[in-house]
């Protein structure tokens, strides 16, 4: 099972400002009452959008954006993959932030949505730039680890393992893990709790 190669994501940007934005806010738990991920996109940030009419996800200027610019500890809290699924189904194909909660980042990677980090200063610069010119496209380059927006270019960071998974099209890990099944059997047979002590 091969997944697509993801080296470059280009699209308009949407700034979602604020630290510690948790997955309950990205997708409230009531929308987890379902057996598929279908239709989650329309509920992304639903409660935040209702309480704040100016939320970027409400703003027509950002409709059609595909690069989300976040601040610190984005996606903290619950492990629900429904959160990145809601963002992806809304149209987000890459997220750049100051930092990410680990389970959220793992979920995004496993879905082929790259998460990259940049300095606080650079993130704010990019959020301001996207706000000033939401029609202009931003480019996330995973090979060069750069984010460019017109004349502005900033350095990005990403764990090398995740970067390789994405740029080599190995982010869907099932097939790769399956290939190691003989070695898995050997390891299992060495574990005392597997063999009954």
């Amino acid at each position: 099972m091969n997944s697509s190669v993801i080296q470059y994501v280009e699209g308009r940007a949407i700034p979602v400002r604020g630290n510690d934005i948790d997955t309950d806010r990205i997708i409230p738990a009531r929308y987890l009452r379902a057996i598929t991920f279908e239709g989650l996109g329309e509920h992304a940030f639903e409660d935040d959008r209702k309480s704040n009419p100016d939320h970027p996800f409400n703003n027509p200027r950002y409709q059609g954006a595909s690069v989300l610019i976040a601040n610190d500890n984005f996606g903290c809290g619950s492990s629900r993959e429904h959160a990145p699924q809601a963002l992806m189904r809304w149209g987000i194909y890459a997220i750049v932030g100051e930092s990410f909660a680990e389970i959220f980042l793992g979920n995004c990677t496993a879905m082929g949505v790259p998460c990259l980090t940049a300095s606080t200063e650079d993130i704010i610069k990019m959020q301001d730039a996207a706000e000033a010119d939401p029609q202009r496209e931003m480019a996330v380059d995973l090979k060069e680890k750069k984010l460019t927006f017109g004349d502005i270019e900033v350095d990005l960071q990403i764990a090398e393992g995740n970067r390789l998974q994405l740029i080599e099209g190995a982010w869907d890990a099932t097939g790769m893990l399956f290939e190691g099944r003989d070695a898995v059997r050997d390891i299992a047979n060495k574990l005392p709790y597997v063999t009954g002590f």
Partner: peptide, 12 residues
């Protein structure tokens, strides 16, 4: 189990 091509670990 092994080191994957990405450098990550395949963990049982």
């Amino acid at each position: 189990v092994r080191t994957l091509p990405s450098g990550q670990t395949q963990l049982f």
